[in-house]
Design a protein around this nucleic acid. Sequence first.
DNA 1: ATAAGATATGTCATATCTGACATATAGTCA
DNA 2: TGACTATATGTCAGATATGACATATCTTAT
Lengths: 103, 103
Amino acid sequence: MEKNKQKKLEAAGWRIGTVDEFLNLNQQEAEYIELKLSLSKNLQKRRRSLKITQKDFAKMIKSSQSRVAKMESGDPTVTIDLLVKSLLTLKTPKNSLSRILPR
Amino acid sequence: MEKNKQKKLEAAGWRIGTVDEFLNLNQQEAEYIELKLSLSKNLQKRRRSLKITQKDFAKMIKSSQSRVAKMESGDPTVTIDLLVKSLLTLKTPKNSLSRILPR
DNA sequence: ATAAGATATGTCATATCTGACATATAGTCA
DNA sequence: TGACTATATGTCAGATATGACATATCTTAT
């Protein structure tokens, strides 16, 4: 890698080819999983508070009971996209998800 | 649909087979797109403020320049997952994305 | 304990997303 | 202007996520 590029990447918080890089990757991964899990739990909480079964909720989002179970358990095959779409289904227009953005 | 189930769905804010349902779907879709676009713009802003090119940033996230361009333009083939992972790469551990959760 | 309903787990064909590449367009500077 | 760098757009083969299904396990009521 040329010197110049390395400087730029370091400016973005990277230390190339070092332990730091490894730790950063783990950190990102951890935060990503944490985020997903939080969405999962929130979804489950909302569904339960509405006294809807996974089966009924699956119909609302045109999915299946098994996938809803996977959503709520934080299964690795479930994307944030699916979780967000599901949460939006359970929200009234006023309680917008747009408030959950980076600040 | 049986009467009982319909009641449950209505409790979750649905009016089955009506104009309301149609509007709700549009509303969700709109919020989903709005969310994605906001993440897109945030990503672009962060990358630019760090004076990193799309090409260099692509290397950081093990992707390609073209996909970074698509991320920043809100291309429909880009998932929230990819945007979030990318944003996490540009954040220092302290500025966690975990603060952007549903409240 | 046992039946019934709800939720979890495993699998799979199909749909969708991905990085990569080619190439077009926009921006910058001599 | 033209050369150079950055960004945008189109395409595609391979990778990953999806809904659906079968079936297992948990929960609850009797």
